[in-house]
């Protein structure tokens, strides 16, 4: 149930970011909520379900972004396993850490896609713009907390188990305790 709910949610986000979000003014960049969902899945879901979802998100993104296939599933999976690996030392559930994690992950994922495109297609001239990259990172950082709340709500709808947002926590107990679905 959770798997299919989040698969559908990924499809809806991909549809929105290829249609509605393009109506936004140019200074707003290209919001990428699917990327926030990848981070959310890495933070909240178990290894099997999470890896499966992230793989399918990558395959979906692959169809609509660029013309060469295979970049996005690999980058998303690598990001997923890296986040799973370091999640023992991070509290991604808390908004204070969500923001830098999303921004830095986006920078790393974009660099990986840029480098792999440049290596695989040497004739292809891709313009790396720090300004655009910063706009994207700031935009994603700003959107990460509200989107995490929305995704938590979806998780609640599909599992009926509510994770309190970080600002509602009392601050006691083990902050590093893993809460996976």
């Amino acid at each position: 149930m959770v798997f299919f709910c989040f698969l559908m949610l990924g499809g809806v986000l991909l549809t929105l970011q290829t249609t509605v979000f393009h109506l936004l003014p140019e200074w707003a960049g290209k919001p990428d909520p699917l990327f926030i969902l990848v981070i959310f899945v890495a933070a909240r879901m178990d290894l099997f379900r999470g890896a499966g979802l992230v793989l399918l998100y990558g395959l979906g993104m692959d169809i609509f972004a660029g013309i060469y296939l295979g970049f996005y599933p690999i980058v998303y999976l690598l990001l997923f396993f890296s986040l799973k690996g370091i999640s023992r030392h991070l509290v991604i559930y808390e908004s204070v850490q969500q923001i830098p994690v999303v921004a830095i992950s986006y920078l790393l994922a974009s660099s990986a896609i840029y480098c792999s495109s440049a290596l695989l297609v040497p004739d292809c001239y891709i313009d790396w713009s720090w300004r655009n990259m910063l706009v994207q990172m700031i935009m994603l950082a700003m959107l990460s907390t509200p989107f995490f709340l929305i995704f938590d709500f979806f998780l609640f709808l599909s599992t009926r188990q509510w994770i309190k947002p970080s600002f509602l926590h009392s601050g006691n107990g083990n902050r590093f305790k893993r809460r996976e679905f």
């Binding site: 549809t15 290829t18 393009h22 290209k30 609509f64 660029g66 013309i67 974009s110 840029y114 655009n132």
Partner: peptide
Amino acid sequence: IVGRDPSLWFRTVV
């Protein structure tokens, strides 16, 4: 045109 490329680097439309 019904959709546009979601990435920063590439320019495609559906």
